[in-house]
């Protein structure tokens, strides 16, 4: 298999891979920002005082977490047009990725907040701080240190999950491999190149994850 490995074809397809690499980066980045926002809002609703909002956020989080991303993707891809909502494929894809990761971010943020000792909140109340002041100055700065690693872990998952977008014919890294396979019938060249690009992203995020952890421990020690 490997002796017939055709590097020339890979070089020829490099511009396509570069374009697709950027597309994967761009769509995952957008979805990541959206997901963190969705996560903060959903977590705030879940932990907040309003019961109906809390139940709503709970249903959202649980239903996302107990169904596969691919099903959610198809749900929006085939479902939104029946409601008369027409988006380009990539928008549908980013929406599905955002909502999916958003539910996981909500859980990560929640466990970070709940890991802070309740004495901290009580001390905040005793000092006359309101809910937002307590969150802003006491809870969140501490919770962030606890959550940075799982958050980056979820970012890695999100980048990998973006490969599913190829199944609704969005042009990204996995789709580039499929194109090379169907154009030239060279699956080894196509998908192994795709895998290498994902590995580059993976090792970058992994390195960043351990780097940030060292920095945070360093800060705590002072």
């Amino acid at each position: 298999m490997l002796e017939a490995f055709n590097f020339r074809v890979i070089l020829e397809y490099m511009p396509l891979y570069g374009q697709c690499f950027l597309a994967t980066l761009w769509m995952s980045g957008l979805a990541l920002l959206g997901a963190i926002l969705v996560g903060i809002v959903a977590c705030g609703m879940r932990l907040g005082q309003v019961r109906s909002l809390s139940v709503l956020a709970g249903i959202f989080i649980e239903s996302i977490r107990s169904t596969p991303l691919l099903v959610q993707l198809y749900f929006f891809y085939f479902g939104l047009p029946t409601l008369g909502i027409m988006f380009p494929e990539w928008v549908t894809g980013v929406i599905a990725l955002t909502l999916n990761s958003g539910a996981y971010y909500a859980e990560i943020i929640r466990s970070g907040i709940q890991s802070i000792d309740s004495g901290q909140t009580e001390a905040g109340i005793a000092s006359g701080m309101n809910y937002f002041q307590r969150m802003r100055y006491i809870i969140l700065p501490q919770a962030l240190g606890m959550t940075i690693r799982p958050m980056l872990g979820q970012a890695i998952v999100l980048v990998k999950d973006s490969s599913l977008l190829s199944l609704i014919s969005i042009l990204e890294l996995t789709r580039a491999g499929q194109l090379l396979t169907s154009d030239r019938f060279m699956p080894a060249e196509g998908f192994l190149t795709t895998a290498v690009f994902y590995l580059i992203l993976y090792y970058m995020l992994k390195w960043f994850s351990s780097w940030s952890e060292k920095r945070l421990i360093f800060r705590e020690a002072h």
């Binding site: 298999m1 890695i156 990998k160 999950d161 973006s162 490969s163 599913l164 190829s166 199944l167 996995t174 491999g177 499929q178 396979t181 699956p187 080894a188 998908f191 192994l192 795709t194 895998a195 994902y198 590995l199 993976y202 090792y203 992994k206």
Partner: peptide, 23 residues
């Protein structure tokens, strides 16, 4: 473990399904 964690599952499925036959 790193190779499996670092690549999307869909790509792994394609590699096993499309590349193993050529081997």
């Amino acid at each position: 473990v790193d190779l499996i964690r670092g690549t999307p599952f869909l790509v792994q499925v394609f590699i096993i399904f499309f590349i193993l036959p050529s081997a």
